[in-house]
Amino acid sequence: MLWVSWLLVLACYGWFVGGAMGNGPLIGHDEFIHARVPWRVLGLLWLGGGLGLAVLAKRRTLLSATSFGLQVLLVGFFSSYFLQDSFLPDHAVALKVGEAFPSYALLDQDEIVHSSTSNEPREPALYIFYRGDW
């Protein structure tokens, strides 16, 4: 049962790394991108941790205690990461379809100024706001 608990926890780690790399091998990239909360992977993770606890309850050895301690760290980290990132604070974009995009003058990656005013014809554009490189 100890090995099964580790298999579940490590499978979730593999899903996480695979999903981040764009080729999730176990549950798939889709859930990584589309699901607000990846309950399937969290369920497997918590099941793995629960089995680790069951092993510890059954056999109070140094191995099972160390194993469960490590699992608590991994399960805690992934649970915190996924749940924290799954719920952004309430907010609403202060712009509605049909309204003018705000004027701006900003530098691009080559430090060239790009500017736009509300009433000026321009090329259609798609603005994607992302968190930045990390």
Partner: peptide
């Protein structure tokens, strides 16, 4: 994500609920 037309009007807006 916001799609803006040639007159500077927003034509499509996407708001995410999670970073993923």
């Amino acid at each position: 994500a916001i799609l803006v037309d040639r007159w500077g009007s927003a034509r499509w807006i996407y708001e995410s609920e999670t970073y993923r």
